[in-house]
Nucleic acid binder design. Structure first.
Lengths: 203, 203
DNA sequence: GTGCGATGTATCGGTGCGATACATCGCGAT
DNA sequence: ATCGCGATGTATCGCACCGATACATCGCAC
Protein backbone atom coordinates (compact mmCIF):
# COMPACT_ATOMS: atom_id res chain seq x y z
CA UNK A 1 0.00 0.00 0.00
CA UNK A 2 2.55 2.50 1.11
CA UNK A 3 4.48 1.26 -1.86
CA UNK A 4 2.04 2.69 -4.36
CA UNK A 5 1.53 5.86 -2.38
CA UNK A 6 5.24 6.56 -2.10
CA UNK A 7 6.00 5.75 -5.72
CA UNK A 8 3.11 7.91 -6.82
CA UNK A 9 4.27 10.89 -4.79
CA UNK A 10 7.91 10.52 -5.75
CA UNK A 11 6.86 10.39 -9.37
CA UNK A 12 5.62 13.95 -9.03
CA UNK A 13 8.77 15.20 -7.30
CA UNK A 14 11.75 13.92 -5.32
CA UNK A 15 11.12 14.28 -1.62
CA UNK A 16 12.70 13.59 1.73
CA UNK A 17 11.04 11.56 4.44
CA UNK A 18 9.43 14.30 6.42
CA UNK A 19 7.93 16.04 3.41
CA UNK A 20 6.80 12.70 2.08
CA UNK A 21 4.91 12.10 5.25
CA UNK A 22 3.29 15.53 5.12
CA UNK A 23 2.03 14.88 1.61
CA UNK A 24 0.85 11.43 2.62
CA UNK A 25 -1.20 13.01 5.37
CA UNK A 26 -2.52 15.75 3.12
CA UNK A 27 -3.46 13.40 0.31
CA UNK A 28 -4.66 10.29 2.11
CA UNK A 29 -5.12 11.58 5.64
CA UNK A 30 -8.88 11.17 5.58
CA UNK A 31 -8.71 7.41 5.57
CA UNK A 32 -5.17 6.42 6.43
CA UNK A 33 -2.45 7.50 8.84
CA UNK A 34 0.87 6.21 7.50
CA UNK A 35 3.27 6.91 10.32
CA UNK A 36 7.04 6.92 10.14
CA UNK A 37 7.02 3.49 11.68
CA UNK A 38 5.89 2.11 8.36
CA UNK A 39 7.23 4.79 6.05
CA UNK A 40 10.94 4.33 6.73
CA UNK A 41 10.97 0.54 6.59
CA UNK A 42 9.01 0.77 3.37
CA UNK A 43 11.52 3.22 1.92
CA UNK A 44 14.32 0.85 2.83
CA UNK A 45 12.57 -2.05 1.16
CA UNK A 46 12.01 -0.02 -1.95
CA UNK A 47 15.60 1.06 -2.03
CA UNK A 48 16.69 -2.56 -1.70
CA UNK A 49 14.39 -3.41 -4.60
CA UNK A 50 16.04 -0.71 -6.67
CA UNK A 51 12.94 1.42 -7.15
CA UNK A 52 14.25 4.50 -5.41
CA UNK A 53 17.60 6.05 -4.53
CA UNK A 54 18.64 8.04 -1.51
CA UNK A 55 20.44 11.17 -2.62
CA UNK A 56 22.21 13.50 -0.29
CA UNK A 57 19.98 16.50 -0.66
CA UNK A 58 21.66 19.88 -0.82
CA UNK A 59 19.74 23.12 -0.89
CA UNK A 60 17.06 23.80 -3.47
CA UNK A 61 16.79 20.24 -4.69
CA UNK A 62 13.23 19.89 -3.56
CA UNK A 63 10.85 21.12 -6.21
CA UNK A 64 8.33 23.73 -5.30
CA UNK A 65 9.99 24.43 -2.01
CA UNK A 66 9.24 27.67 -0.21
CA UNK A 67 12.11 30.16 0.07
CA UNK A 68 14.20 28.21 2.54
CA UNK A 69 17.72 29.24 3.28
CA UNK A 70 19.70 26.31 4.60
CA UNK A 71 18.31 22.90 3.82
CA UNK A 72 21.49 20.94 4.00
CA UNK A 73 22.15 17.24 4.41
CA UNK A 74 18.66 15.84 4.02
CA UNK A 75 18.08 12.43 2.53
CA UNK A 76 16.15 12.95 -0.68
CA UNK A 77 14.35 9.99 -2.21
CA UNK A 78 14.02 9.76 -5.94
CA UNK A 79 12.40 7.37 -8.38
CA UNK A 80 14.59 5.18 -10.57
CA UNK A 81 13.62 3.87 -13.99
CA UNK A 82 12.74 0.55 -12.37
CA UNK A 83 10.67 2.45 -9.89
CA UNK A 84 8.69 4.12 -12.63
CA UNK A 85 8.12 0.76 -14.21
CA UNK A 86 6.91 -0.65 -10.92
CA UNK A 87 4.61 2.31 -10.47
CA UNK A 88 3.11 1.80 -13.92
CA UNK A 89 2.56 -1.83 -13.03
CA UNK A 90 0.75 -0.94 -9.83
CA UNK A 91 -1.34 1.73 -11.53
CA UNK A 92 -2.41 -0.77 -14.18
CA UNK A 93 -3.83 -3.22 -11.66
CA UNK A 94 -7.58 -3.43 -11.94
CA UNK A 95 -8.42 -6.34 -9.65
CA UNK A 96 -9.47 -6.76 -6.03
CA UNK A 97 -6.06 -5.54 -5.00
CA UNK A 98 -7.15 -2.15 -6.29
CA UNK A 99 -10.68 -1.90 -4.91
CA UNK A 100 -10.59 -3.39 -1.44
CA UNK A 101 -11.09 -1.09 1.52
CA UNK A 102 -7.46 -0.53 2.37
CA UNK A 103 -6.27 -0.04 -1.17
CA UNK A 104 -8.99 1.75 -3.06
CA UNK A 105 -8.31 5.16 -1.62
CA UNK A 106 -4.68 5.11 -2.59
CA UNK A 107 -5.44 3.96 -6.12
CA UNK A 108 -8.09 6.61 -6.44
CA UNK A 109 -5.73 9.32 -5.24
CA UNK A 110 -3.49 8.57 -8.21
CA UNK A 111 -6.22 8.27 -10.82
CA UNK A 112 -4.68 11.29 -12.47
CA UNK A 113 -1.78 9.07 -13.49
CA UNK A 114 -4.00 6.09 -14.30
CA UNK A 115 -5.31 4.86 -17.61
CA UNK A 116 -8.97 5.88 -18.07
CA UNK A 117 -10.08 2.34 -18.79
CA UNK A 118 -8.46 1.08 -15.64
CA UNK A 119 -10.11 3.88 -13.72
CA UNK A 120 -13.57 2.74 -14.74
CA UNK A 121 -12.84 -0.88 -14.02
CA UNK A 122 -11.60 -0.06 -10.54
CA UNK A 123 -14.60 2.14 -9.81
CA UNK A 124 -16.98 -0.58 -10.96
CA UNK A 125 -15.15 -3.24 -9.02
CA UNK A 126 -15.31 -1.12 -5.93
CA UNK A 127 -18.98 -0.48 -6.43
CA UNK A 128 -19.95 -4.12 -6.81
CA UNK A 129 -17.82 -4.94 -3.80
CA UNK A 130 -19.80 -2.41 -1.79
CA UNK A 131 -23.10 -3.64 -3.19
CA UNK A 132 -22.26 -7.10 -1.94
CA UNK A 133 -21.56 -5.71 1.45
CA UNK A 134 -24.77 -3.72 1.41
CA UNK A 135 -26.74 -6.90 0.76
CA UNK A 136 -24.96 -8.65 3.57
CA UNK A 137 -25.61 -5.91 6.08
CA UNK A 138 -29.20 -5.43 4.99
CA UNK A 139 -30.11 -9.08 5.37
CA UNK A 140 -28.21 -9.28 8.63
CA UNK A 141 -30.28 -6.40 9.95
CA UNK A 142 -33.52 -7.96 8.75
CA UNK A 143 -32.71 -11.34 10.21
CA UNK A 144 -31.96 -10.01 13.66
CA UNK A 145 -33.93 -6.78 13.91
CA UNK A 146 -36.12 -7.90 16.81
CA UNK A 147 -33.38 -9.60 18.80
CA UNK A 148 -30.94 -6.78 18.32
CA UNK A 149 -29.90 -4.25 20.90
CA UNK A 150 -31.08 -0.71 20.17
CA UNK A 151 -27.58 0.71 19.80
CA UNK A 152 -26.25 -2.20 17.83
CA UNK A 153 -29.10 -1.75 15.41
CA UNK A 154 -28.39 1.96 15.10
CA UNK A 155 -24.78 1.19 14.36
CA UNK A 156 -25.73 -1.30 11.66
CA UNK A 157 -28.12 1.14 10.05
CA UNK A 158 -25.57 3.91 10.09
CA UNK A 159 -23.11 1.57 8.44
CA UNK A 160 -25.68 0.57 5.86
CA UNK A 161 -26.34 4.19 4.97
CA UNK A 162 -22.63 4.84 4.70
CA UNK A 163 -22.27 2.05 2.20
CA UNK A 164 -25.27 3.23 0.22
CA UNK A 165 -23.89 6.73 0.12
CA UNK A 166 -20.56 5.51 -1.17
CA UNK A 167 -22.29 3.46 -3.86
CA UNK A 168 -24.09 6.59 -5.06
CA UNK A 169 -20.81 8.48 -5.09
CA UNK A 170 -19.17 5.79 -7.18
CA UNK A 171 -22.07 5.71 -9.59
CA UNK A 172 -21.69 9.42 -10.20
CA UNK A 173 -17.96 9.05 -10.73
CA UNK A 174 -18.46 6.21 -13.17
CA UNK A 175 -20.93 8.23 -15.17
CA UNK A 176 -18.55 11.15 -15.30
CA UNK A 177 -15.77 8.87 -16.46
CA UNK A 178 -17.94 7.40 -19.19
CA UNK A 179 -19.02 10.80 -20.41
CA UNK A 180 -15.48 12.09 -20.71
CA UNK A 181 -14.40 8.82 -22.30
CA UNK A 182 -16.95 9.04 -25.07
CA UNK A 183 -16.32 12.72 -25.62
CA UNK A 184 -14.28 12.86 -28.82
CA UNK A 185 -12.18 15.87 -27.95
CA UNK A 186 -9.34 15.48 -25.54
CA UNK A 187 -9.66 16.66 -21.99
CA UNK A 188 -7.67 19.80 -21.12
CA UNK A 189 -5.64 17.75 -18.67
CA UNK A 190 -2.13 17.23 -20.02
CA UNK A 191 -1.94 13.47 -20.07
CA UNK A 192 1.38 12.07 -18.85
CA UNK A 193 3.46 10.34 -21.51
CA UNK A 194 2.51 6.89 -20.33
CA UNK A 195 2.95 4.30 -23.02
CA UNK A 196 -0.38 2.65 -23.41
CA UNK A 197 0.62 -0.64 -21.90
CA UNK A 198 -3.00 -1.63 -22.04
CA UNK A 199 -2.50 -5.18 -20.94
CA UNK A 200 -5.53 -6.76 -22.49
CA UNK A 201 -4.41 -10.10 -21.12
CA UNK A 202 -7.23 -10.90 -18.73
CA UNK A 203 -10.57 -9.19 -19.11
CA UNK B 1 -10.05 -3.26 21.46
CA UNK B 2 -10.85 -6.90 21.03
CA UNK B 3 -10.69 -7.01 24.78
CA UNK B 4 -13.78 -4.89 25.26
CA UNK B 5 -15.61 -6.56 22.42
CA UNK B 6 -14.98 -10.05 23.75
CA UNK B 7 -15.79 -9.19 27.33
CA UNK B 8 -18.96 -7.46 26.22
CA UNK B 9 -20.12 -10.42 24.19
CA UNK B 10 -19.21 -12.97 26.85
CA UNK B 11 -21.15 -10.93 29.37
CA UNK B 12 -24.29 -11.67 27.40
CA UNK B 13 -23.59 -15.39 27.12
CA UNK B 14 -20.69 -17.87 27.29
CA UNK B 15 -19.44 -18.66 23.81
CA UNK B 16 -16.82 -20.69 22.02
CA UNK B 17 -14.32 -19.21 19.61
CA UNK B 18 -16.17 -19.79 16.40
CA UNK B 19 -19.46 -18.41 17.63
CA UNK B 20 -17.64 -15.50 19.20
CA UNK B 21 -16.18 -14.62 15.85
CA UNK B 22 -19.56 -14.86 14.17
CA UNK B 23 -21.04 -12.42 16.65
CA UNK B 24 -18.07 -10.15 16.29
CA UNK B 25 -18.68 -10.03 12.57
CA UNK B 26 -22.41 -9.53 12.97
CA UNK B 27 -22.06 -6.78 15.54
CA UNK B 28 -18.98 -4.88 14.42
CA UNK B 29 -18.50 -6.18 10.91
CA UNK B 30 -19.28 -2.86 9.31
CA UNK B 31 -16.13 -1.25 10.55
CA UNK B 32 -13.87 -3.99 11.83
CA UNK B 33 -12.90 -7.51 10.81
CA UNK B 34 -11.40 -9.21 13.86
CA UNK B 35 -9.96 -12.40 12.45
CA UNK B 36 -8.94 -15.48 14.37
CA UNK B 37 -5.38 -14.34 14.11
CA UNK B 38 -6.14 -11.74 16.73
CA UNK B 39 -9.05 -13.38 18.49
CA UNK B 40 -7.26 -16.45 19.84
CA UNK B 41 -4.17 -14.65 21.12
CA UNK B 42 -6.46 -12.14 22.76
CA UNK B 43 -8.44 -14.91 24.43
CA UNK B 44 -5.24 -16.41 25.71
CA UNK B 45 -4.12 -13.08 27.15
CA UNK B 46 -7.44 -12.61 28.84
CA UNK B 47 -7.36 -16.07 30.30
CA UNK B 48 -3.87 -15.37 31.66
CA UNK B 49 -5.21 -12.18 33.20
CA UNK B 50 -7.96 -14.17 34.88
CA UNK B 51 -10.87 -12.46 33.15
CA UNK B 52 -12.21 -15.51 31.40
CA UNK B 53 -12.11 -19.27 31.82
CA UNK B 54 -12.05 -22.01 29.24
CA UNK B 55 -14.66 -24.58 30.08
CA UNK B 56 -15.04 -27.86 28.33
CA UNK B 57 -18.36 -27.27 26.67
CA UNK B 58 -20.86 -30.12 26.67
CA UNK B 59 -24.14 -30.06 24.82
CA UNK B 60 -26.68 -27.29 25.22
CA UNK B 61 -24.35 -24.98 27.08
CA UNK B 62 -24.51 -22.34 24.41
CA UNK B 63 -27.46 -20.07 24.88
CA UNK B 64 -29.92 -19.71 22.07
CA UNK B 65 -28.51 -22.63 20.18
CA UNK B 66 -30.61 -24.27 17.52
CA UNK B 67 -31.74 -27.85 18.17
CA UNK B 68 -28.35 -29.42 17.69
CA UNK B 69 -27.77 -32.97 18.75
CA UNK B 70 -24.09 -33.45 19.44
CA UNK B 71 -22.14 -30.30 20.33
CA UNK B 72 -19.47 -31.97 22.38
CA UNK B 73 -15.99 -31.01 23.37
CA UNK B 74 -15.90 -27.38 22.34
CA UNK B 75 -13.93 -24.86 24.32
CA UNK B 76 -16.43 -22.48 25.86
CA UNK B 77 -15.22 -19.14 27.16
CA UNK B 78 -16.90 -17.62 30.15
CA UNK B 79 -16.53 -14.39 32.12
CA UNK B 80 -15.12 -14.53 35.62
CA UNK B 81 -15.94 -12.07 38.38
CA UNK B 82 -12.68 -10.28 37.63
CA UNK B 83 -13.69 -10.21 34.01
CA UNK B 84 -16.96 -8.51 34.83
CA UNK B 85 -15.08 -5.99 36.87
CA UNK B 86 -12.72 -5.34 34.02
CA UNK B 87 -15.63 -4.95 31.64
CA UNK B 88 -17.28 -2.44 33.93
CA UNK B 89 -14.01 -0.54 34.04
CA UNK B 90 -13.77 -0.43 30.26
CA UNK B 91 -17.39 0.55 29.87
CA UNK B 92 -16.90 3.42 32.31
CA UNK B 93 -14.10 4.96 30.29
CA UNK B 94 -15.16 8.26 28.81
CA UNK B 95 -11.91 9.62 27.39
CA UNK B 96 -10.14 9.58 24.05
CA UNK B 97 -9.68 5.84 24.44
CA UNK B 98 -13.41 5.56 23.93
CA UNK B 99 -13.98 7.94 21.04
CA UNK B 100 -11.07 7.50 18.68
CA UNK B 101 -11.71 5.94 15.30
CA UNK B 102 -10.72 2.41 16.17
CA UNK B 103 -12.46 2.29 19.52
CA UNK B 104 -15.64 4.29 19.23
CA UNK B 105 -17.58 1.68 17.30
CA UNK B 106 -16.94 -1.00 19.87
CA UNK B 107 -17.88 1.24 22.76
CA UNK B 108 -21.02 2.29 20.97
CA UNK B 109 -22.00 -1.30 20.28
CA UNK B 110 -22.12 -1.90 24.02
CA UNK B 111 -23.92 1.29 24.96
CA UNK B 112 -26.75 -0.91 26.13
CA UNK B 113 -24.54 -1.93 29.04
CA UNK B 114 -23.11 1.56 29.55
CA UNK B 115 -24.07 4.24 32.02
CA UNK B 116 -26.22 6.93 30.36
CA UNK B 117 -23.94 9.74 31.48
CA UNK B 118 -20.92 8.01 30.05
CA UNK B 119 -22.80 7.48 26.83
CA UNK B 120 -23.38 11.19 26.37
CA UNK B 121 -19.81 12.06 27.21
CA UNK B 122 -18.46 9.59 24.69
CA UNK B 123 -20.83 10.81 22.00
CA UNK B 124 -19.81 14.42 22.64
CA UNK B 125 -16.14 13.56 22.71
CA UNK B 126 -16.48 11.74 19.45
CA UNK B 127 -18.32 14.65 17.92
CA UNK B 128 -15.78 17.27 18.88
CA UNK B 129 -13.04 14.95 17.68
CA UNK B 130 -14.74 14.80 14.30
CA UNK B 131 -15.35 18.53 14.26
CA UNK B 132 -11.64 19.08 14.69
CA UNK B 133 -10.97 16.80 11.81
CA UNK B 134 -13.58 18.55 9.69
CA UNK B 135 -11.83 21.86 10.28
CA UNK B 136 -8.51 20.34 9.34
CA UNK B 137 -9.77 18.82 6.13
CA UNK B 138 -11.75 21.90 5.16
CA UNK B 139 -8.80 24.27 5.53
CA UNK B 140 -6.53 21.78 3.83
CA UNK B 141 -8.88 21.74 0.87
CA UNK B 142 -9.12 25.53 0.79
CA UNK B 143 -5.39 26.02 1.01
CA UNK B 144 -4.62 23.70 -1.87
CA UNK B 145 -7.75 23.74 -4.00
CA UNK B 146 -6.10 25.22 -7.07
CA UNK B 147 -2.92 23.16 -6.92
CA UNK B 148 -4.74 19.93 -6.21
CA UNK B 149 -5.30 17.09 -8.62
CA UNK B 150 -8.92 16.62 -9.68
CA UNK B 151 -9.24 13.17 -8.13
CA UNK B 152 -7.39 14.03 -4.99
CA UNK B 153 -9.77 16.91 -4.49
CA UNK B 154 -12.77 14.67 -5.04
CA UNK B 155 -11.42 12.27 -2.46
CA UNK B 156 -10.95 15.04 0.07
CA UNK B 157 -14.44 16.38 -0.49
CA UNK B 158 -15.97 12.95 -0.16
CA UNK B 159 -14.08 12.52 3.10
CA UNK B 160 -15.26 15.91 4.29
CA UNK B 161 -18.87 15.05 3.59
CA UNK B 162 -18.47 11.73 5.39
CA UNK B 163 -17.25 13.52 8.47
CA UNK B 164 -20.04 16.06 8.30
CA UNK B 165 -22.58 13.30 7.97
CA UNK B 166 -21.23 11.51 11.01
CA UNK B 167 -21.33 14.73 13.01
CA UNK B 168 -25.01 15.13 12.19
CA UNK B 169 -25.63 11.53 13.20
CA UNK B 170 -23.93 12.07 16.53
CA UNK B 171 -25.86 15.26 17.17
CA UNK B 172 -29.10 13.40 16.72
CA UNK B 173 -27.97 10.65 19.04
CA UNK B 174 -26.92 13.13 21.68
CA UNK B 175 -30.27 14.86 21.53
CA UNK B 176 -32.06 11.56 21.90
CA UNK B 177 -29.91 10.68 24.87
CA UNK B 178 -30.58 14.02 26.53
CA UNK B 179 -34.30 13.73 26.01
CA UNK B 180 -34.51 10.33 27.61
CA UNK B 181 -32.19 11.46 30.40
CA UNK B 182 -34.15 14.58 31.32
CA UNK B 183 -37.49 12.84 31.12
CA UNK B 184 -38.65 13.08 34.75
CA UNK B 185 -39.33 9.41 35.26
CA UNK B 186 -42.50 9.66 33.26
CA UNK B 187 -41.30 6.56 31.50
CA UNK B 188 -41.00 3.41 33.61
CA UNK B 189 -37.33 3.44 32.60
CA UNK B 190 -37.03 0.07 30.95
CA UNK B 191 -35.69 1.87 27.94
CA UNK B 192 -32.18 0.36 27.71
CA UNK B 193 -32.85 -2.73 29.89
CA UNK B 194 -34.31 -4.48 26.92
CA UNK B 195 -32.35 -7.52 28.05
CA UNK B 196 -34.14 -10.29 26.31
CA UNK B 197 -33.61 -12.74 29.16
CA UNK B 198 -34.76 -15.68 27.12
CA UNK B 199 -34.46 -15.87 23.41
CA UNK B 200 -38.19 -15.62 22.82
CA UNK B 201 -38.98 -12.46 24.70
CA UNK B 202 -40.12 -10.27 21.85
CA UNK B 203 -43.34 -8.30 22.32
C1' DG C 1 -19.83 -44.21 0.99
C1' DT C 2 -18.22 -40.19 -0.61
C1' DG C 3 -17.61 -35.65 -1.05
C1' DC C 4 -18.66 -31.01 0.52
C1' DG C 5 -19.79 -27.11 3.10
C1' DA C 6 -20.35 -25.51 7.76
C1' DT C 7 -18.33 -25.75 12.24
C1' DG C 8 -14.30 -25.45 15.00
C1' DT C 9 -9.29 -24.49 16.81
C1' DA C 10 -5.03 -22.60 15.87
C1' DT C 11 -0.61 -20.37 13.83
C1' DC C 12 2.33 -17.49 10.73
C1' DG C 13 4.07 -13.61 8.18
C1' DG C 14 3.33 -9.14 7.14
C1' DT C 15 1.56 -4.32 7.42
C1' DG C 16 0.89 -0.44 9.70
C1' DC C 17 0.18 2.38 14.09
C1' DG C 18 1.48 5.04 18.22
C1' DA C 19 4.95 6.29 21.14
C1' DT C 20 9.33 7.49 21.60
C1' DA C 21 14.16 9.13 21.04
C1' DC C 22 17.19 12.39 19.42
C1' DA C 23 19.15 16.20 16.75
C1' DT C 24 18.91 20.73 14.26
C1' DC C 25 16.86 25.12 12.80
C1' DG C 26 14.50 29.58 13.04
C1' DC C 27 12.56 32.84 15.97
C1' DG C 28 10.46 35.43 19.57
C1' DA C 29 10.75 36.52 24.59
C1' DT C 30 13.54 37.56 28.44
C1' DA D 1 22.95 36.70 23.66
C1' DT D 2 20.57 33.27 24.95
C1' DC D 3 17.04 30.40 26.27
C1' DG D 4 13.38 27.77 25.15
C1' DC D 5 10.03 26.09 21.97
C1' DG D 6 7.81 24.47 18.08
C1' DA D 7 8.68 22.95 13.43
C1' DT D 8 11.68 20.12 10.73
C1' DG D 9 14.02 15.85 10.22
C1' DT D 10 15.53 10.70 10.71
C1' DA D 11 14.82 6.55 12.91
C1' DT D 12 13.31 2.37 15.94
C1' DC D 13 10.44 -0.59 19.04
C1' DG D 14 6.49 -3.08 20.56
C1' DC D 15 1.98 -4.16 19.58
C1' DA D 16 -2.66 -5.06 17.31
C1' DC D 17 -4.66 -6.81 13.71
C1' DC D 18 -5.39 -8.95 9.14
C1' DG D 19 -5.40 -12.56 5.55
C1' DA D 20 -4.03 -16.90 4.44
C1' DT D 21 -3.53 -21.22 5.74
C1' DA D 22 -3.60 -25.82 8.01
C1' DC D 23 -6.22 -29.28 10.09
C1' DA D 24 -10.01 -31.94 12.01
C1' DT D 25 -14.97 -33.13 12.70
C1' DC D 26 -19.96 -33.08 11.74
C1' DG D 27 -24.23 -33.39 9.17
C1' DC D 28 -26.20 -34.07 4.97
C1' DA D 29 -27.04 -34.64 -0.01
C1' DC D 30 -26.14 -37.45 -3.89
Amino acid sequence: MLELAVLGLLNEAPLHGYELRQRLKATLGTFRAFSYGSLYPSLRRMKAAGWITEDEGDAAVVAGAPPLTGRRGKVVYKLTADGKERLAELLAEAGPSAWEDETFGVHFAFFGQTDPEVRVRILEGRRSRLEERREGVATSIDRTRSRLDRYTLQLQEHGLESVEREVRWLTELIETERRSATTPRAVPDPAPPHTTTTGRGAP
